[in-house]
Simulated assay, not measured.
Amino acid sequence: MTHDSIGSFLDKAAPALAKAPGALVFAEDQVEVDTTLAHALKLGFGTVALFADPDIVVAEAIAPRIQRIDWDIHRDEAVQTAVNKVIAAAPAAWLHYCYNAEYLFFPFCETRSVADLLAFHAEERRDAMLTYVIDLYAGDLDRFPNAVSRAEALLDRSGYYALGRPDPANHNHPKERQLDFFGGLRWRFEEHVPWTRRRIDRIGLFRAKPDLALREDHTFSVEEYNTYACPWHNNLTAAICSFRTAKALRTNPGSRFDIHSFRWQNSVPFQWHSQQLMDLGLMEPGQWF
């Protein structure tokens, strides 16, 4: 179903979002839009909504299974505005948001649904889940000039680190249970990435509530949502495997001609399986066995 406004979408979708987790996909271009939507549907999201310009094409087999909203994705705060409108209209709904060519993985997602995941997470009294955005990239940029190839995707097996997140309201002392995470292409090619865009952490799964708001830096207005674990033990985390940074570095004129390969000694093929991400320490099963 296609909606000409986000209001029309929310009028029809809010009851469904209250019953099953929803995925909000923001298409910046045509690259891998169909596979991103298909992946979200496979994970078991009850509502999959595509926010995109009208000229973005969706495969006929997928189009009837999604909600489509005409949206100017390139305007300032486009994603932030849309997510916050959905939060306000669907309090208590579990939501995931991502861009095209991004794929959510969580522990054991091959045999368990996203509803199973979030039911367990809620039982642990958690309303948000940390997701690491793990860069994917093609190994051969001559064959894949936009750095996107699902069949030959690579990722970094090491090079990730975290720093304490300073609290300006408390003399810049580190915030409790909050860290800024770095790594991947944004770390290796940091000269091409503004400092404010180098973090790879995102609260990619969360439960809407009144007065909650997504901020420009992908954190939330409720500080507990930005924590990586509860005070008493480690919690589940997930990963968003993303071609977005590689695609941007190969598209932007300032970096395109300086980067001839993303390969390095720690590049490994991506197996498209949650076990690889857990083995590499890129997500945490917590107490969920």
Rank of each mutant, 00 (worst) to 15 (best):
D34L: 03
P269G: 09
F270W: 14
A151M: 04
V57I: 07
S113V: 15
W232T: 12
F51R: 03
D72L: 13
C98Y: 10
I66T: 06
A246K: 04
R250T: 02
R112K: 11
A27M: 05
R186A: 01
M278H: 02
P253S: 08
L214D: 09
D127Q: 12
G204P: 02
F108C: 08
E216L: 14
D167Q: 07
A89V: 14
S267A: 08
I62N: 10
A63G: 08
F257A: 11
P64N: 05
T245V: 03
A88C: 04
F189G: 11
Y160R: 00
A18I: 12
W232K: 09
P145A: 13
Y99N: 07
T227A: 09
Q276D: 02
E176S: 05
P194F: 14
L280I: 02
D55P: 00
Q287V: 07
A162K: 01
S274I: 00
A213C: 12
L282Y: 02
L136S: 09
R177A: 11
P285R: 05
E110N: 15
K247C: 05
Y103T: 04
Q276F: 00
F257K: 11
A101L: 06
L24I: 04
D76Y: 05
A20F: 14
E191N: 03
G44M: 02
A162R: 01
G22I: 01
A147D: 01
P91E: 02
E216M: 12
P269Q: 12
V86C: 14
I6A: 05
F120D: 02
R125K: 15
A40G: 00
I240L: 09
A14G: 07
L117V: 06
P210H: 08
D4Q: 12
D34Y: 07
L130T: 06
H173A: 09
Q80E: 11
L10S: 04
A40C: 07
R157M: 12
Q67S: 08
R188A: 04
F9T: 04
D180G: 01
N100E: 11
E191A: 04
G44A: 06
Q67F: 04
R256G: 07
R263M: 13
E102Y: 03
